[in-house]
Amino acid sequence: MLQCKNLSLTCKDGEHERELLHDINLVIETGESVVFFGPSGSGKSSLMYLLSLLRVATTGEVYLDNNEIMSQNDNAKAAIRKKHFGFIFQQYFLLPHLNVLENVLVPENSISTKSKQKATTFLEKLELTACINKKIHQLSGGECQRVAIARALIHGPTILFADEPTAALDHKSALSAMKMIREHKGNGTLILTTHDTSILTGQERILKLEHGKITEIKHKNFVQAG
């Protein structure tokens, strides 16, 4: 279970301070699929960063299985990310000096035959077999995104954060990427942001983020709104 209490985030906006997220309370049960939905700039990515311990909130707490984790030290947080979290970044954030296969192996820090085999299978499923030995700068945006997906899944995270994981993909690849993400989620938790409602199955819990606040939306309303 991932939970946040009274989460607020203020940012410097030139001279002013802007409250990006205001007093957010949220409980995400293990196994749930949650979608953050909202206009561009509403703070979806920022909220994901807070929940995944990549940023520190101005106020508030984050709990993982009832343990407060946001106030822990950097190394402890890194350990939690390594053990429990996978993150597909909106901007991919791949390592430019490594090739595709090596990027996928980053969370494992291993180039053993076994790890390589596992990574290769992931890349095959994402139709990246031809790119395995390419450098990142030789890839298209969609290919980068798929490499990022493979990297986030390889170590079998219990909570997967996927920030616009299909934004750079065509409809067909988007669907197959989402299929793979769901497959690997298993009993784990998926936390997603997207603008593309067509990749959703209808089983997700949808949370709308606007003006720094979260409102839960029933699926029907959401479809109407979308």
């Binding site: 350990a79 990310r81 390592l95 430019p96 000096h97 969370p107 820090n109």
Partner: peptide, 15 residues
């Protein structure tokens, strides 16, 4: 820095 930042984000600690 970016490279190390990514590593840190993926779960490598600072040490």
């Amino acid at each position: 820095s970016e490279e190390f930042g990514i590593m840190h984000a993926v779960g490598y600690d600072k040490s």
